[in-house]
Write a protein that binds this DNA or RNA. Structure first.
Length: 535
RNA sequence: CGGGGAGUGGCGCAGCCUGGUAGCGCAUCUGUUUUGGGAACAGAGGGUCGCAGGUUCGAAUCCUGUCUCCCCGACCA
């Protein structure tokens, strides 16, 4: 009985958030989350004008609104990276094939998904087409980078001679290519945009500290900027980055209960230093291998934002990331009185632009494109602009405006948009408060939803299988206790989970110590680990 | 890569089985009337039917190949 009730509770909690009178409301999207989450996700992207298919396998065109959100992420994360003392640099797109041959695990991990450049010229095929010129075959093929450990390692080996050269801490913003079997916009594309941090250190401890520094930076970025509650923890051995000694991640719960790995930080030990010959003379004059670290966050974070904050009316962009936080829509009539209205709106725009919210100048757009305000309103609702302000002649006469908060879109009594009508000047002053409240509210809402959908009382495999049975639409996550098996024993566990379409996510950092038995082996448990379906 | 589905104006689809001048809805443009709120009416523009071959007097339609997208798996920092 508890089960049935919980199940019902989960569905309401995961998708609706609140019990709205759904039937009375005409939503801005045609697909609801609870009806078809995957179709809903794609409709949000299309109707918010974020991205579209390109015709090139697995590659997308990121449109201004989607790219604007990514640029905001870049800005805020880059500020954090620089504040941590890491410097930006740029390394080549092409990596010599032989670089990958030096680290066995690394090549195993990536060989199956690499794009390779083999020719440097095209010639006519005699039938109106072009083919790679057989005469222009490269001596050594070039790999389009799937990640840059090996080429940055080359540079590090040249730049590091002495212990005085350490630590060397770099970051690059770049695109990478991984020839994935199955792609989904933003979540897994053949080409994606990211930042990759790379550092070399004198000691294992210092390198591990850097690994944790990056992980904590990601946690703060996710929660404070993206309003994405995450669990930071260590990945189990089988989920490690190829060639890493330790892989840490931040994991977020999407509204369908699946887990999304939203950022990773790897302690690479001396594996890559050995492969790339990153050595230095220590204070005693002895040649020593450096310890290296890498960490990355990608455009996948945009997908996580959509699946965390989107609703049945489209996207909701957290104010910190919104390219425009406030959009003003004058109700233009193509008549002489438009001029006075525009002047009134311009006054509002200037007043809002003079405000500062979340530590930055408020980003406000006065949308004067021709068209009806009501039609444009729904465009901005679907795009997820935090505050939409409509202004008509009657507002102007009364010295007020019509303000709509994207996080409180509907008046649940009337089933209509929940407009407020503040005084124009008070409205401008209240914008920073509203934006801060919304940023905070989105995080709180997502965190409560996540916490309500984590179970910690599952102690045997039958109960686990029941919890994740096929008729459970959105089962969320389960935190289990385990004996941390390794090698073949771990493989067996992974196989068991695979049959349930489940994966091990991570071992949360701040969990209470284990006090039970291992759900997989029955031995004394040593720690807790999250089990979930994953993207 | 395995199984399933689909590519036809910007978007969503019908037509294909049974070959014979390319259609519908939304969107767009123009005009009129409206308009405190996701307008109505009238008219108009826009497609070599994913691409390449083949069969045929004639191909969106039949055949072969190929590319792309979606779903389920497998795969996946």
């Amino acid at each position: 009985m508890t089960h049935a009730r919980r199940h019902g509770g989960f569905r309401v909690c995961l998708i609706h958030g609140k019990n709205l009178p759904m039937s009375a409301i005409r939503h801005a999207l045609s697909t609801k989350r609870e009806d078809d989450f995957a179709a809903w996700y794609q409709e949000v992207i299309a109707s918010a004008d974020m991205a579209e298919e390109s015709g090139v396998r697995g590659c997308m065109v990121i449109k201004p609104w989607g790219y604007g959100i990514w640029e905001r992420m870049q800005r805020l994360l880059d500020d954090r990276i620089k504040a941590a003392g890491v410097q930006n640099a740029y390394f080549p797109l092409f990596i010599p094939l032989k670089n990958f041959e030096r680290e066995a695990e690394h090549v195993d991990g990536f060989a199956k998904e690499m794009a390779v450049v083999t020719h440097h010229r095209l010639i006519a095929d005699g039938e109106g087409g072009l083919i790679p010129d057989p005469e222009a075959k490269l001596e050594e093929p070039l790999v389009v980078r799937p990640t840059s450990e090996t080429i940055i390692g080359d540079a590090m080996s040249r730049w590091i001679q002495s212990w005085r050269d350490l630590p060397l801490r770099l970051n690059q913003w770049a695109n990478v290519v991984r020839w994935e079997m199955r792609t989904r916009m933003f979540l897994r594309t053949s080409e994606f945009l990211w930042q990759e941090g790379h550092s070399a250190h004198a000691s294992a401890q210092e390198a591990k500290d850097e690994t944790m520094m990056a992980l904590e930076m990601y946690r703060a970025f996710a929660e404070e900027d993206v309003a994405l509650p995450v669990v930071a923890g260590e990945k189990p051995e089988n989920e490690r980055f190829p060639g890493a000694v330790e892989t840490w991640s931040i994991e977020a719960m999407m509204q369908d209960g699946k887990a999304l790995q939203a950022g990773t930080s790897h302690y690479l030990g001396t594996n890559f230093a050995h492969a790339a010959n990153i050595k230095y003379q220590n204070r005693e004059g002895r040649e020593t291998l450096a310890h290296t670290v890498s960490w990355g966050v990608s455009t996948r974070m945009v997908g996580g934002l959509i699946m965390t904050h989107g609703d049945d009316d489209g996207l909701r962009v957290p104010p910190a990331l919104a390219p425009f936080q406030v959009v003003i829509l004058p109700m233009l009539r193509e008549k002489p009185e438009d001029e006075a209205l525009l002047e009134y709106c311009e006054g509002l725009r200037a007043a809002i632009a003079g405000q500062s919210a979340l530590g930055e100048t408020v980003r406000v757009l006065l949308d004067t494109r021709p068209g009806k305000a009501a039609a444009k309103r729904w465009d901005w609702v679907r795009k997820g602009a935090p505050i939409i302000i409509e202004v008509g002649g009657r507002d102007m006469e009364g010295g007020v405006v019509s303000l709509l908060r994207r996080d409180r879109l509907w008046n649940m009594d009337t089933g209509k948009p929940a407009f407020q009508n503040p005084d124009r000047d008070l409205c401008a002053q209240s914008v920073p408060t509203i934006l801060a409240d919304m940023q905070n509210g989105l995080l709180t809402q997502a965190r409560e939803r996540r916490d309500a959908n984590i179970r910690r009382d599952v102690t045997d495999m039958d109960a686990l299988a029941a919890h994740f049975s096929r008729d459970r639409k959105y089962p969320g996550w389960v935190e289990v206790q385990w004996a941390k098996p390794t090698g073949d024993a771990l493989e067996k566990v992974v196989e068991q989970l695979k049959e349930l379409r489940l994966t091990l996510r991570n071992v949360p950092m701040h969990a209470p110590p284990a006090d039970g038995t291992c759900i997989f082996t029955g031995e004394q448990a040593v720690e807790r680990v999250f089990v979930a379906r994953a993207y």
